[in-house]
Nucleic acid binder design. Structure first.
Lengths: 334, 334
DNA sequence: CTGTTAGCGCATTCAT
DNA sequence: ATGAATGCGCTAACAG
């Protein structure tokens, strides 16, 4: 059986629908007695007013909603993205609906739902791509969609060149005198990591090694470090394809009495909040710009469904040297 | 004039509304010619399909939305809260819409809107209270509302005892041997800071000082430190009513060559992410529990509007000693 | 105080 | 391929 409506309530309470509507809306023009009766009927039937109907009948304006699918909890990277998204969207009087997505499967589930429900005016994909087939679903529905931190061919996006990012990692390490380099990446299931690995391999010294880890967090950083040190004891430069890993590596190194950057240099990726305070050298990603670009694009698309989407943007990555790497001459005795 | 409907489009394009509906939904049973005409009409009039009407007509189920009002960007405290909120809500198949709120005025604006639009099934207030009058608006609308990190009398909430938190700050500093204590708080406009100040003053040594800052960030921490050092040079223990301030203070202290904790001890509040890595002693707030409790409560209330809200919860604060404070005997020479 | 009625904007048969 | 009619669940006059 489907959800009860005010007609069901009215019938059960022996009143008219207007009365039901009145108690729902807290009108005081209802006798205490009938109010109780209606409330009881609602409780009995587990009544919940239909949102869409209320809005439609009340004639309230449509506040556009954009839903953002994001692997929200993996790293603080998304905190900054989120911030920019929210600010830009709210300035345009739109709502931000956050959907936490852990894997492709979950993403697809939500995408299906979004298409079926048509419950949003736009969607922002964070660090994930979609199939061409799905892309065309959005196309025919005229439902705007953009991506951030993802180099997809099918939808408007803002991204960085992660292959170049990988190169930057190794180059900086080399400039700092490292000759035995290691790279730690997250799952190769993610394109960003594959790209960074590729770039790294292109320019790294012979004999360099790459390590993969499924999850990206501080603990895993320490664990991978242990393995890395065992298999590759001569390492003198560790690049991490994520700041969180770098933090773990740094901690592990210090526990083992290895000096940073004298014995081993450490380099992160993202430039998440607090990395400056921690003094971790890293490759800065334009997180706020990601969020802002995506929000602005989707806003334009929503406001004018026939507008041509702004061309995809490729933003710059910047290497930020701090205390965990040392350019020649910067550290005494090196 | 109000927003154009499919009737307007139909009239302008010289077709029936069914046809308009077809092109909106990407049906292929429309001739190319009429499709173009309709699309042009839509573009000309800036047509945007009405959400509520689509859902109502399509009979899609009501996916409950809960909107969270939060001072989202002030600190990473809210990132963790957000995480828990989102996880719990999504497990219950509800959407989380995030609304960034900077001040009371903005909060009221959104609250008014929420009430007028009835656009959500529940609302979560983060670190903010509402007037009794407004509370009764929610009451009569039967719109569930809960609060987190706020000790309000009028709505179900989860919170901590910030007065006790303030005491913990001073007590720990005292235990660590500090006799000239300072407290840095955010704006007294926020109750949490007033409470922490009150607790601190209750137990702090005579001659202790309290400093207020409007905004809470790292830079401000450094700035306030400067002022503090100038006015209160004999200080040997600085408590901050927020980790972010503590980070700034710590940086400032190190720049000035003051040793921590030997010369001056530093204590934060919140236990935000990365504080463990930074080794900052702090008072741990149960951020995830805040989020989970609020989400679970609101879910219950939404699922059964006639349920009695779960009783408000007062969670424990925990002092976490790390490297910026030192219990007697923990630091050589102290 | 309460019931009747007429839309809200759109998707959807059912005709044509 | 396209149009007319019906109803989604509810609110808001308008009567009584």
């Amino acid at each position: 059986m489907s959800a009860p409506t005010i007609y069901d309530i009215a019938a059960r309470a022996g009143v008219g629908i207007a009365t039901v509507s009145r108690v729902i809306n807290g009108s005081r023009r209802v006798s205490d007695h009938t109010r109780k009766a209606v409330q009881k009927a609602m409780a009995d039937l587990g009544f919940r007013p239909n949102h869409a109907a209320r809005r439609l009948a009340a004639g309230v304006p449509n506040r556009p909603r954009v839903v953002a699918l994001m692997p929200f909890f993996t790293t603080a990277f998304y905190f900054t993205v989120c911030k920019a998204l929210s600010e830009t969207l709210s300035a345009a009087d739109m709502d931000l609906v956050l959907v936490d997505v852990r894997d492709q499967q979950e993403a697809d589930r939500h995408l299906d739902r979004l298409i079926a429900e048509r419950s949003s005016e736009g969607v922002v994909l964070c660090s994930m791509d979609i199939s061409d087939e799905r892309r065309s679903q959005f196309e025919t529905l005229n439902l705007p969609i953009v991506a951030l931190d993802c180099n997809t061919k099918t939808i408007p996006h803002v991204a960085v060149d992660n292959v170049e990012g990988g190169r930057m990692l190794s180059r900086h390490l080399s400039e700092c005198g490292s000759t035995h380099q290691a790279l730690i990446i997250g799952t190769r299931g993610a394109e960003v990591f594959r790209d960074r690995e590729r770039g790294f391999r292109e320019v790294c010294p012979a004999g360099s090694r790459v390590f993969e880890t499924e999850t990206v967090d501080i603990e895993r950083g320490e664990e991978v470090l242990e393995q890395l040190l065992a298999e590759f004891p001569e390492v003198d430069g560790i690049a991490c394809a994520g700041d969180t890993l770098a933090v773990g590596v740094l901690q592990g190194l210090r526990k083992r009495g290895r000096r940073v950057p004298e014995d081993v240099q450490v380099l992160g990726f993202d430039d998440q909040p607090m990395m400056d305070v921690l003094g971790i050298s890293t490759v800065h990603q334009p997180m706020s710009e990601f969020g802002r670009w995506a929000a602005e694009s989707i806003i334009e698309l929503i406001k004018d469904p026939n507008a041509t989407p702004r061309p995809s943007a490729l933003l710059d990555l910047t290497l930020i040297p701090r205390q965990t790497t040392a350019l020649p001459g910067k550290v005494p005795g090196r």
